[in-house]
């Protein structure tokens, strides 16, 4: 299956070739979780605070489906 990962803020250093505002495609095994995808991408899970799958909050255990869009953020805030 194919999924897209976008990393933001301080996580961008783990996918330095990813243009801002675009995703990077990965082809993990079916049944892979968000945590598995992040491992595959080399993004340390302990630096990830917020995960969204298809624009909804999800946990690292969330099992991905073909075509999913995953976004990962470190702790961020503002206002």
């Amino acid at each position: 299956m194919e999924v897209e990962l976008r990393v933001y803020a301080t996580l961008r250093k783990y996918l330095p070739a990813q243009p801002l505002g675009e995703g990077t495609l990965f082809r993990p095994e079916p049944g892979t979780s968000v945590a598995g995808l992040l491992e595959l991408a080399g993004v340390p899970l302990d630096q990830v605070k917020i995960i969204m799958v298809n624009n909804r909050h999800a946990g690292p255990e969330h099992v991905l489906a073909d075509g999913d869009r995953v976004a990962a953020f470190p702790p961020v805030a503002g206002g």
Binding site: R6, Y8, A9, T10, G21, K49, I50, M52, N55, H57, A71, F73, P74, P75, V76, A77, G78, G79
Partner: peptide, 25 residues
């Protein structure tokens, strides 16, 4: 000690929220 006030805000300012609000729709 808080990661929001010690890392994200000084590095990116409050506009760090643009991408996350956009992702959240």
């Amino acid at each position: 000690e808080h990661p929001v006030t010690n890392a994200a805000l000084p590095a990116y300012g409050t506009a760090v929220l643009i991408n996350i609000l956009n992702e959240a729709g």
